[in-house]
Design a protein around this nucleic acid. Structure first.
Length: 286
DNA sequence: ATACCGACCTGTCAGC
DNA sequence: TGCTGACAGGTCGGTA
């Protein structure tokens, strides 16, 4: 389900709604797949922790946790504001996989099928993790969380271009490799390559400097436009308030197999690269 | 070291 | 109606 723009939308919504709230108790389901940390450790880390903030790192949602009382922490505001994690002592890391959702709900609302975790909050609300396919992952970490790749919206051009140097893999696969860039998934890889005029099967190392410059600009443009639109809602994606995004109406190739290219009317092609579908215009992309 | 493939899961939809 | 197979926004481990 969620790539960088969807995760960014969700994280912003959670930050707005949950910052300052306190986790009173935690319920974890009995399916082992979603838990990357031992259940006991997760519960003890989360219970009675204050939510200091919520942010996105790659496709991960990072919930910064603090154990200080609001009064005590106010004294350290100046110091904490200098740090990205707000001086948090631990983090709850949520990866939504393909179908994961983090929903803010009232306790009386029906608990949906495939709910794997419920955080009960001092405000009386619940934060629920729901994930039918169980590809999502939950973890707690104590020493800060870092994604392995560069942030596509922060990376400079020279570093970006260097990521593809000497790589024989298709450029589409390189864009999806989270150790190179963190956050780009199937939709935004296809959309970026279309805007850059580069075919998805091209060997990464074969891109000219001009093509890399177009791709660099296209990635940032597509991600920023998608964030502004609240993400893409293909099938069932919704943010933490249950609202859909609307970037799917601006997809130019993803999910448009056989439909005319919006630039040249040539039918959009769909091929499979490393087991993932790839969509492109055979005329506009070389 | 790098790159591909199947596996991990459930739900949905098209076709027969 | 009901079965079967293909497919889905992601990532991992094994293998070549």
């Amino acid at each position: 389900m969620p790539e960088l723009p969807e995760v960014e939308t969700i994280a912003r919504g959670l930050a707005q709604n949950l910052t300052g709230d306190v986790i009173e108790s935690v319920w974890l389901g009995n399916k082992p797949e979603p838990l990357k940390s031992p259940p006991g450790e997760m519960v003890s880390t989360l219970e009675q922790a204050r939510i200091a903030g919520v942010r996105r790192v790659g496709k991960h949602i990072v919930v910064d946790l603090s154990r200080q009382s609001p009064v005590a922490s106010r004294r350290q505001t100046a110091v904490r504001s200098l740090r990205r994690d707000g001086g948090a002592q631990a983090q709850w890391i949520v990866h939504l996989g393909m179908t994961g959702r983090l929903l803010i709900a009232k306790p009386e609302h029906e608990i949906p099928k495939h709910t794997h975790a419920i955080l009960r909050l001092r405000s009386g609300r619940e934060l629920r993790f729901v994930d039918p396919r169980r590809f999502g992952r939950l973890a707690v970490v104590r020493h800060g969380f870092q994604a392995p790749g560069s942030e596509p919206l922060d990376v400079g051009f020279e570093l970006f271009a260097g990521l593809f140097c000497g790589r024989k893999t298709p450029i589409k696969s390189a864009l999806l490799n989270q150790r190179l860039l963190s956050g780009i998934g199937n939709i935004y890889a296809d959309e970026s390559l279309f805007r850059a005029g580069v075919r998805p099967r091209r060997r990464a190392a074969s891109l000219t400097r001009a093509e890399l410059q177009r791709l660099y600009g296209a990635v940032q443009e597509v991600l920023n436009e998608a964030i502004a639109a609240g993400g893409s809602s293909v099938s069932d994606y919704v943010d933490s308030n249950g609202d859909a995004g609307f970037f799917q109406f601006q997809h130019r190739v993803y999910g448009r197999e056989g439909e005319p290219c919006l630039v040249c009317r040539t039918p959009i092609k769909r091929i499979v690269i490393a087991g993932r579908s790839a969509h492109y215009c055979p005329k506009c992309q070389e």
